[in-house]
Design a protein around this nucleic acid. Sequence first.
DNA 1: CCAATTTTGTTCTCACGTTCACAAACTCCT
DNA 2: AGGAGTTTGTGAACGTGAGAACAAAATTGG
Lengths: 236, 236
Amino acid sequence: MSTRSSTDANRVIPEATVARLPVYLRALTALADSGIRTCSSEDLAIAAGVNSAKLRKDLSHLGSYGTRGVGYDVDYLRYQIAREIGVTQDWPVVIVGIGNLGHALANYSGFRSRGFRVVALLDADPDLIGQTVAGVAVRAFDELEAIVQEHDVAIGVIATPAVAAQSVADRMVAIGITSILNFAPAVVAVPDGVDVRKVDLSIELQILAYHEQRKANGADAAAAAALASSADGGAA
Amino acid sequence: MSTRSSTDANRVIPEATVARLPVYLRALTALADSGIRTCSSEDLAIAAGVNSAKLRKDLSHLGSYGTRGVGYDVDYLRYQIAREIGVTQDWPVVIVGIGNLGHALANYSGFRSRGFRVVALLDADPDLIGQTVAGVAVRAFDELEAIVQEHDVAIGVIATPAVAAQSVADRMVAIGITSILNFAPAVVAVPDGVDVRKVDLSIELQILAYHEQRKANGADAAAAAALASSADGGAA
DNA sequence: CCAATTTTGTTCTCACGTTCACAAACTCCT
DNA sequence: AGGAGTTTGTGAACGTGAGAACAAAATTGG
């Protein structure tokens, strides 16, 4: 009795694939916007900046949505990926911490257009409460529980300073939020069953700096190696 | 003649390790700030939110900076990691695109304190040029080349709308920038030798949404499975 | 209708990353 | 000094992911 349909909710999709599905979704939207109705895995792979074999393998985890010899129907595939990710519905989101970054997030139009709706902005600073940002009033952090219950919020965004991040996360978890996107430069610990993703601006820059330094050192090392080998002469 | 010192510039550090080094650096700074002079791999692993075996293996790629039976000297290890990443020096950075996100980035104090210095803010919008953001004047995008050459900038940050991202990246590459941090929701293509890292707010949310949806479906499926098995009864 | 062509979906192999488990090396206490 | 107790650094096993290569399935042209 192991007949598994292609829409079987129990099939596992590798994490690496899940992380790329939103990229494919965006690339498909761009293709659709430029009037393209059908594309090959090669076309889509280029638009998404990946290898076409990887793209096909990723899509094969969702099901067989292409046609051999033809390619993929852009709108159809787009819908299938959106459904798989879960962004055919709208997800209510709360943002905690309305500093510079919180402002930018509240104003980011990409959330609304991609399946997310900011239902509340919260901050602990009394001076901010009552101000309107991006058309949404800033409310007191204490109101988190009421808001989460009213709108059935599952996803919270932390944009506070580092010191506040853990206590905000604890509160979110206690209230029933099960997915957290953390922009604060701090590690937050959460119990099993709660997902945390971390976006850290300076960590990304540091990773670039490492490679940048190696480029410079590599050039130096190559020069040094050239000198050394010329000093070695033919003395092998 | 294969005597390789522990500071051999040619040893390779796995990419996954490189991505975690900044996390360790931050955790060590936090420990140092609370007056801790020495820590075990277990202590540091908890502070960094990773498994201690992974932490030790990561550090072993840099060299042997710990003492068995004792642990790591916080300041010493911090310096070694900072040197490895390359943030003992200051990296000049330009930010292109001073919208909501560009504002937030310009004001982000974490850059300055972690080895990066914003030397210029650029935008194509004439209305923005001349305004001061975070103490730095916004200048015309055309001035990119002069600024990059004057300050020897190797790292550029793109915070423009998606449509502008590729052309900004092309210009950066042409001028000699070799590392790009891209916040625009678009894939940018660059030649070999140029590193691009991408930070995408809505992609992170979409990944959370996927898992959130699976939690809900999983609960449904579990309920359905329970029903099915009770319907099955003992009919094995 | 059949051969040639195109393109998907999948299999196989290799590389990379994670985790376990333990020997080596250090400190502390008697 | 020597044994007990800690903690690092690393070898080995395991799991996941990437990419090449190819069979299967569709279209196209004669």
